[in-house]
Simulated assay, not measured.
Amino acid sequence: MQTKIAANASAFRRWLAKSEETLGNHSDRLNAINIFPVADGDTGTNLYLTMRAANRAAQQNESSDLGVLLSAAAQAAMEEARGNSGTLIAVFLAAMAEPLQGATRLSAPLLAAALRRAQIRSWSALSDPIQGTMLSVLEAAAEGAVTADDALGGDDSNHALSVALDATVAAALEGVVRTEQQLSELQRAQVVDAGGVGLLLVLDNLRAVILHQELQANLLDGLAGYDVHKTHIHQSMSVIEGVEVMCTIALSPLDAANLRMKLDELGNSVIMSPMAQEGEQEIYRWRVHVHADEPDATLTAIRALGEPMNVTVAELRAATHDHADG
Results as ranks from 00 to 15, higher is better:
Met1Gln: 05
Gln2Ile: 06
Gln2Cys: 00
Ala9Glu: 08
Ala11Gly: 04
Phe12Thr: 06
Leu16Thr: 04
Glu20Ser: 08
Asn25Lys: 13
Arg29His: 02
Pro37Phe: 07
Val38Lys: 06
Asp40Thr: 02
Gly44Lys: 03
Asn46Val: 04
Leu49Pro: 01
Arg52Glu: 11
Arg56Val: 02
Ser63Glu: 02
Leu66Asn: 13
Ala72Asp: 11
Glu79Gln: 14
Leu100His: 02
Ala103Ile: 02
Thr104His: 13
Thr104Arg: 14
Arg117Trp: 10
Gln131Thr: 11
Ser136Tyr: 06
Ala140Cys: 09
Asp155Phe: 14
Asp156Phe: 13
Ala160Ile: 11
Leu161Thr: 08
Ser162Phe: 02
Ser162Gly: 12
Ala167Tyr: 12
Val169His: 01
Arg188Ala: 07
Ala194Phe: 11
Gly196Ser: 05
Gln213Gly: 01
Leu219Cys: 05
Asp221Thr: 11
Gly225Cys: 03
Tyr226Asp: 01
Val228Gly: 15
Thr231Glu: 15
Ile233Thr: 15
Met237Ile: 05
Thr248Asn: 14
Leu254Gln: 14
Arg260Glu: 10
Gly267Gln: 10
Val270Met: 11
Val270Ile: 15
Met272Gln: 04
Met275Phe: 11
His289Tyr: 12
Ala301Gly: 02
Ala301His: 00
Gly306Ala: 10
Ala319Trp: 13
Thr320Ser: 12
Asp322Met: 10
Ala324Gly: 13
